[in-house]
């Protein structure tokens, strides 16, 4: 079982979270042409190794997290809030 250290709630089972998607995607602006959106939505690397992904602490604090996880070993290298301001909240809590 993957265990994710939520910066707000602590280390929890992955069943509390829901997987989001590729965290390395830079979403184009809403005005951007269709080609940019097609690339952002449908084209994905199939990474063997560490990838950045988003997880939602659905049954916890509901924070969206950016997680670096190895697709080979499931080892989690880092976890941080997706929203930069939330990092401050988390640091204040500690």
């Amino acid at each position: 079982m993957i265990r994710i250290k939520c910066p707000y709630c602590g280390e929890r089972d992955h069943s509390e979270f829901s997987y989001g998607g590729d965290a390395s995607i830079e979403y184009p602006s809403l005005e951007a042409p269709q080609e940019d959106w097609v690339k952002a939505i449908f084209f994905r690397e199939n990474i063997r190794g560490v990838q950045k992904e988003t997880w939602h602490h659905l049954n916890g604090c509901r924070m969206w997290l950016e997680v670096e996880r190895s697709t080979i070993t499931h080892e989690i290298k880092s976890v941080k809030p997706c929203h930069p301001d939330y990092t401050k909240i988390v640091e204040n809590k500690q």
């Binding site: 989001g20 965290a23 939602h56 659905l58 509901r62 924070m63 969206w64 809030p81 997706c82 929203h83």
Partner: peptide, 13 residues
């Protein structure tokens, strides 16, 4: 609900 949270926390910070 999750979608709105994602937009606000991930995309449109």
């Amino acid at each position: 609900m999750s979608w709105l949270e994602e937009l606000l926390q991930v995309r449109w910070t």
